[in-house]
Nucleic acid binder design. Sequence first.
DNA 1: TGTCTTGTAATAATGATTATTACACGTTAT
DNA 2: ATAACGTGTAATAATCATTATTACAAGACA
Lengths: 143, 143
Amino acid sequence: MQIASRFTIAVHIVACIDYFQKSTSVTSAFLAGSVGVNRVVIRTLMTKLKEAGIIAISRGKTGVRLGRRSEEISLYDVYKAVESVDESGLFNWHSSPNPLCPVGKNVRRALGETLVKAQLSMEKELKSATIADLTAELHKVAD
Amino acid sequence: MQIASRFTIAVHIVACIDYFQKSTSVTSAFLAGSVGVNRVVIRTLMTKLKEAGIIAISRGKTGVRLGRRSEEISLYDVYKAVESVDESGLFNWHSSPNPLCPVGKNVRRALGETLVKAQLSMEKELKSATIADLTAELHKVAD
DNA sequence: TGTCTTGTAATAATGATTATTACACGTTAT
DNA sequence: ATAACGTGTAATAATCATTATTACAAGACA
């Protein structure tokens, strides 16, 4: 299983806003065109990104803008905004281990910490990369 | 999205074998009882674990055994055996970004390396933990 | 040979993700 | 104020991966 594409879509959205907001009015239709998905998918993600303070939305012709400087938006911020990270964790547990078996009763506790560490390690990498980095790279490639 | 529970199930299986193989004949029915899933699910995973050399299976009453010492089986070995890790990576990409948009055309390339690094960082943690560690912890808790 | 167990195909059930339509409502410009 | 444009969101369907389950063939061992 994988981390849903809505994460890369969300990153794409934010990067697009950073890339284009000075030159164009960025709308959900515009973003849908760049990402290649339905407008409603874009809007749903936009709402989540707005709730996280990553972007600012206003209705009408204004277009979407970043909620703060792209240097201050990490990939983890985006990840957290659109994925349900906290609730269940990256690793999915089988739901009914046998409490009468010493292994079944304790695996989760005995293994849990290690898996949390693995998850945090991945998230740390996402925290160290910003949208500004990505946009810079995009500008570089486009030259 | 999460990493499928078949990973924790597989770890549970291997830990069970390590924990019980000296005292009992460990079978798919036994394991299904401890894990709390259908026998066929266990068998399917057993087959994959066997292909990875993690366990050794024989039909009849013998029961399942480890393919090598539990100190030499990392969580990553198990992870790799039952998840399709290499093919597509941990992060799922949206499939049709617009090649006519400078962002759509290049996000994947510009972001790819960072995501791979995040994935590898997680896997590194899984590599540093062994089934032996887990079984030791299980014995400790059971005392 | 009989009993136990694995191997595996076939199928269904479940659940999450993603796509799409439809329409109410906010915002801006004229 | 009203038309034009854009977001917010409910409702529904399509798709896909995961997980469950039945059924039976075939290997291993006493």
